[in-house]
Design a protein around this nucleic acid. Structure first.
Lengths: 168, 168
DNA sequence: TTGCTAATGTCAGGACTTTGACATGCAGGA
DNA sequence: TCCTGCATGTCAAAGTCCTGACATTAGCAA
């Protein structure tokens, strides 16, 4: 059977089989067995890999996420981008200013209707995104290939279910 | 911004390698379809829920994770706790200092062998942990109950596989 | 012994993110 | 009309986290 896949000295339990048979409502005795811990671990691994890969392109993870969202849905506002990348409006505001200063996106100073300022990719921004996208997609492929293909859809669904259950 | 509701399992495409397949509304690749996006979303939801719940107990998420780890494995050092919570030694150092100032953990100023300083929960720290644990476990239960029980083990395994594939 | 490597704790600086707050603009009903 | 509620953009302050760097210590090999 599978052993402790996380290679740190923090997994000292030898009774994984017992726990699996008693998995219902009661939580496990070992935090490293908890769903939250695994989720955090996977997310941290993804974040770290993306961080390293994007640094070579002069982008941070939130910046890349912002560019990717703007590429698919041009004209998104600051608040919309914030919701799409799971950060606050204030954080996204900083990100947008950085991208704007770098000339990767453009935003009108004013608008004739409402307060939302639609952002758009510049030519340079699109180029930077295209360059960075390949490395990010490589990372994504590594993740996808690590899980059995027949379970991928279920995995995506379960991730969504968990997020929805927590009001994500 | 339109939200693509992927909560239903109908959103599964049989061929994983062909990313640009079905999905009537959006013909091309949609970032919200990517594993990384879903993972980030679920992790963000968990983080937010834990953040809100722990604030009532005067703890941050890293602080709680640190206490939980120390409860199960007393005597862990700063570096070991950092690895266990997926942050750097420096970040964990800050967390430990905060917990120490709050009187929730204790750490010797020196050691006779090596440099690692073993940390231990104080009585107050254990009490605070016990109080916070119930709310965190409630959140965890919400997550677990959102996914079909027969898929839970596979979900945990797949999360580990993805993390391992990225060198987590 | 001596030197090298790896791991640890710590400091400094910067980058990122959050909470809190305030002002602006639109849509609804009294 | 007014005005209340809601969403948005922005500023300020604090907290959090990271990268880079340095000194200390144990373990191992020549």
């Amino acid at each position: 059977m599978q052993d402790c896949t996380h290679g740190d000295p923090l997994c000292q339990n030898a009774d994984m089989d017992d726990r699996k048979s008693v998995e219902p409502p009661h939580p496990a005795q070992d935090v490293t067995e908890h769903v939250g811990y695994r989720l955090k671990r996977a997310a941290a691994a993804l974040r770290g890999a993306m961080d390293k890969a994007l640094r070579e392109h002069g982008l941070t993870v939130p910046q890349y996420a912002c560019l990717e969202l703007l590429d698919q849905q041009p004209g998104l506002s600051n608040a919309e981008l914030a919701r799409g990348t799971f950060v606050t409006r204030q954080s996204m505001n900083v990100v947008l200013r950085g991208l704007q200063d770098a000339g990767l996106i453009s935003r009108p100073a004013t608008t004739d209707h409402g307060r939302a300022l639609p952002a758009h990719l510049t030519a340079e921004g699109r180029g930077r995104l295209d360059a960075a996208r390949s490395t990010v997609y490589d990372i994504e492929r590594q993740m996808v290939e690590a899980v059995p293909q027949r379970r991928l859809a279920a995995l995506l669904s379960d991730l969504d279910r968990m997020a929805a259950a927590l009001g994500g």
